[in-house]
Design a protein around this nucleic acid. Sequence first.
DNA 1: TTTATAGTTCAGCAAATATTGAACTAACTT
DNA 2: AAGTTAGTTCAATATTTGCTGAACTATAAA
Lengths: 152, 152
Amino acid sequence: MVLTEKQKELIERFGVLNEKYGLPPAECRVWGLFLVADKVELTFEEIMETLHLSKGGTSTALNRLMMTNHVEYITKLGDKKRYFRCKLNNWTSMTKENFEKFDELNSILKEILEARDPKTHVFNKDLKQVTEFLDFIYKELMIAIEKWENKK
Amino acid sequence: MVLTEKQKELIERFGVLNEKYGLPPAECRVWGLFLVADKVELTFEEIMETLHLSKGGTSTALNRLMMTNHVEYITKLGDKKRYFRCKLNNWTSMTKENFEKFDELNSILKEILEARDPKTHVFNKDLKQVTEFLDFIYKELMIAIEKWENKK
DNA sequence: TTTATAGTTCAGCAAATATTGAACTAACTT
DNA sequence: AAGTTAGTTCAATATTTGCTGAACTATAAA
């Protein structure tokens, strides 16, 4: 598969952004490839060759993307190859999961608050405010997602 | 400064969680120390000794935390030491910034959509849905933050 | 039952990141 | 002006992480 310069650029930019969130470069590029490619179903070989990745690298990237639900594959009768494709219909649940991690931070903060020396009451009060703020935002988010789901 | 086992545990858990978001371990621990400590103002030496960090490591961690606005220091007349402390009153703006990065992803997705081959219309339609969803969530989030700020 | 294809696994290497510690600066103290 | 204290800088090293490529498994076809 031959990519245009624009497609290559988008893959890299998409990659760099996602690397900031802890994804390995190769995985970002595979994901990006799915997003910019002119076709929806890509084979293992195509991905490997288009991105100049090794077999192992391609395998790990695809498997991780499948584990995180960004990619799936279909098979075709009488054809051993897998046809990989990007899942787009799960962004609401992905977003939810993302913010659940955010909520985990809040849980720890609450536990910290619980364990704090009561003597530092100004600090404790401020920390309480933070956890209340995070609680509030989290709830509003969940409401927003629900709103969206009902709208459709 | 001597920490209880609970405090140590909380620092580590807080640390591991933040490492997932790309912060270096030492920096996470320093930040965590501020959150669990029995006092609010900590000196350079205290931090270094309590966490068994080197001078350089302590210095970098503190400076990074100050650059990202999590920590500040005050001084006292006739005292060369700095007294570092954790800032808690900026979580709303921090959260906002966080979500702005999230919005950056959406910008790239929109650009990708723009550049896509129109032939894959089902995929394109789904991707459009995703960007609309992210737009919606972002807006709702900003409204929520505003709501919180007015409540206070 | 051999050959070919599709993908996995993992040891070894390469590159990026984090941390140490020693030499340094800057300011105050005697 | 010599000594002390507080923190910075940065070269060297340690640790972590990502990727390759070759050996492997599993399935299908000849």
